[in-house]
Computed example of a mutant assay.
Amino acid sequence: MALSATLSLSCTPQNRLLSVQKPPLLSATTLLVSPQDARKLLHHALRYKGVSPVGKNPKRSVGKVKASVEWEKGYKKVEVFSKEHLAVSLAYDVAELSNKFTKERGAFSVALSGGSVIKYLRKLVEPPYLDSIDWSKWHVFWVDERVVPKDHLDSNYKLANDGFLSKVPIPANNIYAIDDALPADGAADVYETNLRRLVKSNVIASSAVQFPKFDLVLLGVGPDGRVGSLFPRHYVLKENQKWVTFMKDSPKPPLERITFTLPVINSSANVAMVVTGAGKADAVYTALEKTVDQSSDKLPVQMISPEGELKWYLDKGAASKLFKY
């Protein structure tokens, strides 16, 4: 997301080797550090100015360095932060994407989910982002919604409005809530009709496979591996034609829900997985480290594989099964 360097971690029984690739015109430096220093690097702000993250405390500057983990099974964009630094870094990256797509397309389409994701957007409602982002170009959608009134405590709309949308100047006409006056099937059909209209007008881009291509989808993960309202072993996971579907038998109340289908999420230009808390550690480990047994069902989180970029924002608790010290 327009960041300028990569920090990769390779762990062996003998040592932990950190390789810092600096911006162009600077040579790469290899540093041998203790497990304690590695822990500090992983679980604090992994963005800094300076030539070395070890030794002197560097001057922090959000967005100058991207820290990612190089897994044995391949390269994945994964970052681990304290909760506060997660919010800071997520705000920076979202703002960068907003600027990018506003310049390229004249619009920035963002799909929100429920849970704790909204809480980690809190830095966007503060300077410098509040005054520097072109909020008039934002178009906001919901990955999923519960069939409840908008003022209900279970409403994803209420969660997003109270914690984020009411604090930024996005035009009301650019906020596309799911209709709470309709039954689940009707609300899903109307929402899909609206998405198709907005794709035709290029408010939302179109993917190569003719699904809407959101500029950014923000997802959380449940302890059971669910994303949005896509639950493990639920029949809606197999829906591959509709853009928006519904269920009346959610494994978790409220029972009636509307949700984007998996192909829509996977058509996105960017997906940010924002996951915090030790209760999510098993799901994160399964998604990033476990080999899928062909005889078993994949968890929904394992099925997220977008056309564009998938990036994970984890706190220490959510990443606790990945790192053993």
Rank of each mutant, 00 (worst) to 15 (best):
P171V: 12
P253E: 06
L198E: 06
N161P: 05
S250A: 14
R197T: 13
A177N: 08
F246Y: 15
H234E: 01
K248P: 01
V244A: 08
D215P: 02
L219D: 00
D162L: 14
L182W: 05
F214K: 01
V236D: 00
L165C: 03
P251A: 13
A184S: 13
Y157N: 03
A181N: 13
P253Q: 05
S207P: 02
S206F: 00
K252E: 06
Y191S: 03
L218M: 14
A177H: 11
R197Q: 12
T245L: 11
P212V: 15
V227N: 02
E239C: 12
K167C: 09
G228P: 10
L219H: 10
N156V: 07
G186C: 09
P254T: 06
K167Y: 09
A205V: 15
A181Q: 11
L219N: 07
V190Q: 11
S201P: 03
Q241D: 09
L165F: 06
D162C: 08
N156R: 08
G163C: 12
S207N: 02
K252Q: 06
D215M: 01
M247H: 10
V221Q: 01
P253L: 12
V168K: 02
K252L: 15
G228N: 06
D215W: 01
E239S: 14
L218P: 02
G163I: 13
D249H: 15
G225L: 10
R196V: 12
K158I: 07
F246P: 02
V236N: 08
D224N: 09
A177P: 01
S250Y: 00
P232E: 04
V168N: 08
F231K: 00
D179K: 08
I170G: 04
R196D: 04
V217W: 00
L159C: 13
A205S: 14
G186V: 05
F164W: 07
K158V: 07
P251H: 11
N240Q: 11
S166E: 04
V244W: 09
V190D: 00
K167Q: 12
